[in-house]
Nucleic acid binder design. Structure first.
Lengths: 341, 341
DNA sequence: TTGCGAACTGGAAGCGCTTCCAGTTTCTAC
DNA sequence: GTAGAAACTGGAAGCGCTTCCAGTTCGCAA
């Protein structure tokens, strides 16, 4: 057991020990050419002996690169991030960043302080880039994000305007798939539980829903707002059952609300799928373990996170990648089988 | 629309514009006394006009404080973080950090690179402190974390040894509550689906299970390992049904596995709770929306994250807070009512 | 007025690292 | 053997901020 030195060794000490200049030592550390093999070896040995780890802060100051990127969720609901969707996105982001030297800073901007912090990041050099998710319609940060010099990649489109870089699931297409499936299986009174109207994902899914119905010539059997939570889905379903008792299918803007809807239907003695078919959106772990297992629009959530990170890194490196729209597809399970209930 | 200056204004420019020294400007920015009101006002005006935002990197270098803390999940399964448990913890952590000036760096150390990164953080000044979760039994990082000078707070105890600072739910107590409830409601053949044996939380819950049974004098009706996932719980339940067809209750080490178990039971035509009662652990959103709604050991997950952050900040500020054990309690729902099925 | 502590001020020295640049050495080809 | 290019080297100047310290100024009681 050695007495640990109170302070971390610095590059100067490494250089001194290796008998080279600080410059040479720096070159070795950063794998820059123009260093003789002998010096390189000497420095490497000194690094090992001293247990030297470069101070990232000093490096960041000198290179004018923060060495980190921010994943920001701009929302007012503290619990939004608790949605498995974001956890899954985060895993994807992290798995890409793992291959780089960038750190991931998580910013849940659900308070005034949090928003202010995001604002500061967008106008300082604290990070090398930002991934921005869940931007609400009225959020001034969305505009700020498009004006700043800092690379900003949007995870999901904002409600208005089209940013230069984004990755977005095919929400409209996915919603259409859901409706087409329901119609094909004989449903004629299809209702929808939407998400917050100021979130683009919610709006796009509702649009897809409406479009698909228009194409088939069917009227909708009610469209009620939810909030992407189970409780919200349950409440919305209650309302639908009261207003539109004749419905025979419901499409929800995410899986969580579908679980809530299932609960409400169960309580009212409606059988799923015999009386009412249910289709969700996301296809996260919960969908498979619902009762009955949920038919749902699958979106590649983890891949979304991964591509988001990949795109941001590309922008940070000076490239200009194209926006990405990720495909969605339908996963058919018992809550809405193809054969009519 | 003004032409944005390519570079951020610096403290020097603020000082120049305000007609004061850089030192005085710095004092104003940091709310340090010994500045006349006049200068203070002048600086504040200059800050406003220039849109000055302090460069955090430079500040970090000068103060030798990184201004960030790390939440590290040391696990080998990439998907572990996707468990709603961690999302919920993260929300708690974030909500506390929101009140401070610290940034949250998320590190999902599930690859060799990730582990190496965590190692470097623990031995550099990259962050001011680390919250460490899900440390496996054989993880050398656990030991390293206890030796470093950097403040490290454990979220959940490691398998061996007791760190100086940690916050841990009362896993054993919670498990005992579950068993006592099942026994009280007349169950006599109680099985358990555990988590990974190298995670302390899993071990402690199993201990609590065994202890409670010993106290009542009942033998257990099978203990099979799961992995905290729904699929794992389902598979474990399958095994139990094959090996111990006579069981009338099962306790799972988390809610996810309970959902899997419910699915297996359903497939085998066992009614819940009439034939088999099910009790989970966590009481996250999914529990309420399971079918039937899940009786489960409630642990204050978000509070755990919040306390974790609070404790770390205290340590960073030089205090020596006491470890915390958070209480668990039973939430009774239909999957295991008090009245015997 | 004078004297003295308290309050204020700004120059200068870092924090630890990168990188420009000018100078030195080594190598290759004639 | 020599010119010229290529490779190497290290001094020095920052990156933008904090903070020590040695003054200078101010307010107020005597």
């Amino acid at each position: 057991m050695e007495t640990s030195p109170r302070r971390q060794p610095t590059l100067d000490e490494v250089a001194a020990r290796a008998g080279v200049s600080r410059t040479a030592a720096s070159r070795v550390i950063n794998n820059v050419p123009h260093v003789s093999a002998a010096k390189r070896a000497a420095v490497e040995r000194a690094v090992r002996e001293l247990g030297y780890v470069p101070n990232p802060t000093a490096r960041a100051l000198a290179t004018r690169r923060a060495g980190s990127v921010v994943l920001a969720v701009s929302s007012d609901e503290p619990g939004l991030f608790a949605d498995p969707f974001f956890a899954e996105v985060t895993v994807g982001v992290s798995s890409f960043l793992d291959q780089t030297d960038l750190e991931l800073v998580l910013l849940l901007a659900n308070t005034p302080r949090g928003k202010e912090r995001l604002r500061r990041i967008l106008s300082s050099q604290r990070a090398d880039g930002v991934m921005l998710m869940a931007v609400r319609g009225d959020d001034p940060l969305g505009r700020l994000a498009e004006q700043t010099d800092l690379p900003v990649v949007f995870g999901g489109l904002p409600l208005t305007g089209t940013p230069r870089w984004y990755v977005d699931p095919d929400n409209r297409g996915g919603a259409r798939l859901a409706v087409e499936h329901l119609v094909r299986s004989g449903r004629r009174n299809i209702a929808m539980i939407t998400g917050q109207v100021d979130l683009q994902a919610a709006v796009a899914r509702e649009q897809g829903f409406r479009e698909a119905l228009v194409l088939t010539g069917l009227p909708h059997a009610g469209i009620v707002p939810g909030d992407f939570t189970q409780a919200g889905g349950e409440a919305a379903m209650e309302r639908l059952l009261a207003d539109r008792p004749g419905l025979d299918a419901v499409f929800t803007a995410n899986d969580g609300m579908a679980l809530g809807a299932l609960r409400a239907l169960r309580r009212h003695g409606r059988r799923v799928p015999e009386d009412v078919a249910v289709v969700g959106f996301d296809d996260l772990a919960g969908a498979l373990y619902a009762d009955p297992p949920l038919t749902t629009v699958h979106q590649p959530v983890r891949a979304l996170g991964l591509e988001l990170a990949r795109m941001l890194v590309a922008v940070v490196e000076g490239q200009d990648p194209s926006p990405l729209v990720l495909p969605t597809r339908l996963t058919v399970r018992e809550s809405a089988p193809l054969t009519s209930g």
